[in-house]
Structures are given as C-alpha cells and as structure tokens.
Simulated scan of single mutants.
Amino acid sequence: MSGRRIFLDVGGYVGHSVLAGLDPIFAFDRVYSFEPVRALADRIAQIADPRLHVVVACLSKGHGAVQLFNPGSLAGSVFPDAPEYGGAAPPQTVDKLDAGAFLAAFTGPDDRIWMKLNCEGSEIDVLESILDGGLSGRLSGVLVDFDALKIPSQRHRVAPMVARLDAAGVPYLTPEQCQYGMVTNYGGVRNWLLMAGARLPGAGRAAASLAYNAAMMRRPDVNGYHKMRILKAAPILAPLARSRRDAPGDGREP
C-alpha cells in the first residue's frame, strides 16, 4: 500500500473537484470524496471511474454524528452560526470521521496526498486532527479555504492554524493564490493541482489529458474554465495562424 498518489476531496458538493482530480495528467491511484449529504454523494458517485470512492460523511475531528446546517447548499456547515448561502434548509444529522484516523487507516507513509478543503469551517478540525496525529508529512499539497473566517465562533482558530501549518512545513495554497480567475471550481482545483506539483510528465499522459478536457468542454457546468483558457491563448495563437496562412505554397493568394 505504499507509493500511491491520492486525492482527498473534502467537501465534495456536486463533484466538480473530483472531475478535476480525475484528469489523466495527475494519474491519481485513489480519489476520495467526502460529502455528508446523501443526495449530493449519490450525484458524485455517478462519475464512472474505478479510482473514485465516495464517503458519505464529514471529514472532521473525532468520530460520531453531528448536525449539518443548511445541508445541500454551498454553505452547509456543522456550525450553526455559519452564514447562509444558496438557500436555507432544515438541519440534518450526518456522520463524521476523524481525519487523522482516516489517513492512518487508509493511507501509508510512502503515499503522496493532495487534499482540497472547502468545508465551511471544518477545515480547522481536519487539519488539527492530521497535525495532532503526526501525519502531516503525508501531505504533498493542501488547498485550504479558510471558511472559518466567516464564522464568528470559529474565526479565532484560523491564525493559530496558519502558524501550525507553517511550523510543520505543510505546503498549502489558498483560493486567492490559485483559484481566482479560473471561472469554475473545476478550473480552480485543476489549477491548484498544477501549481501544487501534482502533474506528471509524459506525452501520452498529456494527450490523454487533452482528450479528457475536450470531453469536459461539453459540460456547461465546468466549461467556463476551458473557454477562458481558449480566450487567453487566442492572442498567442493568432501570429502562428497568420504565419501559416501567409506561408508560400499554401494555395492561397498573396
């Protein structure tokens, strides 16, 4: 069980982060998506890939049951004072798993793990559990959205956690550093994985990634990222197109 490449999607929602992680250019051996709302977890499970394992639970600190407020919305949180976003809904009782215990049980010391945290305040509990368990060395990259800053009861925990991450040498990026401007969550997570060194070399893998992203362009929920990349590439490609058009012997009039 050593030497694997693993992607942990903490806060799966509808699976856009999973789709980014399944890009062949990253060649993950396992992709775990943690989503406590059954309807959303079932939606993620419709993504057909044998590497994908959907866990119907929160990743947190400690095992047990917990109340999830505004379940199914973009702001679903275990903290009652978290702000609403995308509509309110009655609380649900959901399962939670201890992050450190999960890593200890399902990953090995030689595995390389990239972890995305977008879980409306629970990111602090997840990171505390991993750091307290001495398992942070398994993390090759973390994308952490410090949603706790938006939650009055939790915002005081952010600065100490940043200090702990820095002291432990955990490589992490925030959305401001890698997701802004990427249009969709798919694009933001893919860009983070590229910046976090998850890309593997190889012409065959690059070709497979190109084909995969061409297929993703048929999905209106994620293709804003691809349209943005095409628009950005247009000024670069235009001179090449003109030079090919004006080349002698191409059958065109001068």
Rank of each mutant, 00 (worst) to 15 (best):
R4L: 10
R4S: 09
L8S: 10
V10D: 11
S17V: 01
V18S: 12
V18F: 06
L19T: 11
L22S: 09
D23T: 12
D23M: 12
D23G: 07
I25L: 14
F26Y: 15
F28D: 09
V31W: 05
Y32T: 14
E35H: 07
A39N: 01
L40F: 02
R43V: 01
Q46K: 15
A48I: 03
D49G: 12
D49V: 08
D49P: 13
L52E: 04
H53Q: 15
V54E: 08
V55A: 11
H63N: 14
G64R: 02
V66C: 06
L74R: 09
L74K: 02
G76Q: 11
V78T: 15
P80N: 04
A82P: 04
A88T: 13
A88G: 07
A89C: 00
P90E: 11
P91A: 00
Q92W: 02
V94R: 03
K96I: 14
K96R: 15
L97E: 09
G108C: 04
R112L: 07
N118S: 14
V126N: 12
L127A: 13
I130T: 08
G134N: 12
G134W: 10
G134L: 11
G137K: 13
R138T: 12
L143H: 09
L143Y: 09
F146P: 05
L149H: 07
